[in-house]
Design a protein around this nucleic acid. Structure first.
Length: 326
DNA sequence: TTGTGTTTTATTGCCTCC
DNA sequence: GGAGGCAATAAAACACAA
């Protein structure tokens, strides 16, 4: 025995003389002739006396035939004496508790799932079981309860996750739609600028006298006026998305050819070979590139892509975020 | 009837508390 | 150090399909 525990089987039970085979001859429900509540509330001597389940068969057979135990698995009421004899000559085996015993224990468990020594003794006495059997039953019952509780918790978490994922998917869809819109408008804008001939970025001689930022901003606002608000904060959140092609979410396939990585940036990069260092610095520091395309460096921290506005607060590596489920 | 999966009863070993 | 709880596990009992 572990932990110094001693299995004191063999001598428990009430040893009542009245045969209970009428009441407990079938564990599958037919024995429920007595309401459980009356069993549970009927004081210290419910009709379990005489049960010797799990005790030694030598003990169980005990005295005379009238003291026959009502083992839970014993539903051989139609068997003859030979079968009965065989049954009792089996080596000691596990015996299931009767349905009534289990119901009684269940009721007790509902009241309190912990078992103080006194209650254990009382239950054992009432049910005609060994106190250890009662303790074991409670222990196993607690384990089952815990498992079910875990299943419930899991279901709740799963539901919560499903809800959040649906919400996330909607946001992602919305994001991609906005992204596509930005790209479309950008293309339109570039096309218009080219038609005007005032924005030939590949030709440094054509750099406008007007500050580039002003030019583009005005054009942007013209383009935006029809549909999109020209508010700086609105656009700046989208502009970082344009160059977010590394994001695993970027699957909308609406990239403008002008904005493809390695191809797009030069569109807005004036050839600075003829600029003075000051002008060059000015260009860089003030970010003369269109503000709705390139965020100011101080606005966006590219060192941590997960913090960029294009992700709506979700980590870029969201595939890792979702990968644990399903 | 038999094979197989599930449930229930019981054991073992470890841990915590008093 | 003993009592009791818990996790892991064994094994019997049970359910059920083929």
């Amino acid at each position: 025995m572990a932990g110094g525990r001693v299995y004191t089987g063999g001598s428990g039970g009430g040893g009542g003389s009245s045969p209970l085979s009428v009441l407990f001859q079938n564990q599958k429900g037919s024995c429920a002739s007595q309401p459980l509540d009356s069993l549970f509330l009927s004081g210290s001597s419910p009709s379990f006396l005489g049960s010797r389940s799990m005790v030694s068969f030598e003990d169980a057979r005990g005295g005379n035939g009238s003291n026959r135990p009502f083992f839970g698995s014993y539903d051989h009421e139609d068997n003859g004496d030979d079968d009965l004899d065989d049954y009792f000559h089996q080596p000691e085996k596990k015996r299931r508790l009767t349905a009534d015993q289990v119901q009684f224990l269940e009721k007790s468990f509902e009241v309190d799932n912990k078992l103080e020594p006194e209650r254990k003794s009382q239950l054992a006495k009432d049910l005609g079981l060994q106190p250890r059997q009662v303790a074991i039953w409670f222990q196993n019952r607690r384990a089952r309860w815990k498992t079910k509780q875990l299943e419930k918790d899991f279901d709740a978490l799963q539901a919560s996750y499903d809800s959040l994922k649906a919400e996330y998917d909607n946001l992602l869809k919305e994001k991609n739609e906005l992204k596509a819109e930005v790209v479309l408008l950008t293309d339109k804008l570039l096309l218009r600028e080219r038609e005007r001939g005032g924005f030939e970025l590949s030709d440094t001689n054509n750099l406008s006298q007007e500050p580039l930022q002003k030019q583009v901003s005005e054009s942007a606002c013209e383009a935006e006026a029809s549909k999109v608000s020209c508010k700086q904060e609105d656009i700046s959140s989208a502009k970082s998305d344009i160059f977010d092609s590394d994001s695993p979410h970027y699957t909308d396939g609406v990239h403008s050819s002008l904005l493809e990585p390695g191809d797009s940036s030069h569109v807005f990069e004036p050839d600075q070979s003829d600029l003075s260092q000051d002008e060059e610095d000015n260009l860089m520091s003030k970010s003369l590139l269109p503000p709705f395309i390139f965020p100011k460096l101080e606005d966006v921290d590219y060192s941590d892509p997960s913090e960029s506005s294009c992700n709506f607060g979700f980590p870029v590596e969201d595939h890792a975020f979702w990968s644990w489920s399903y």
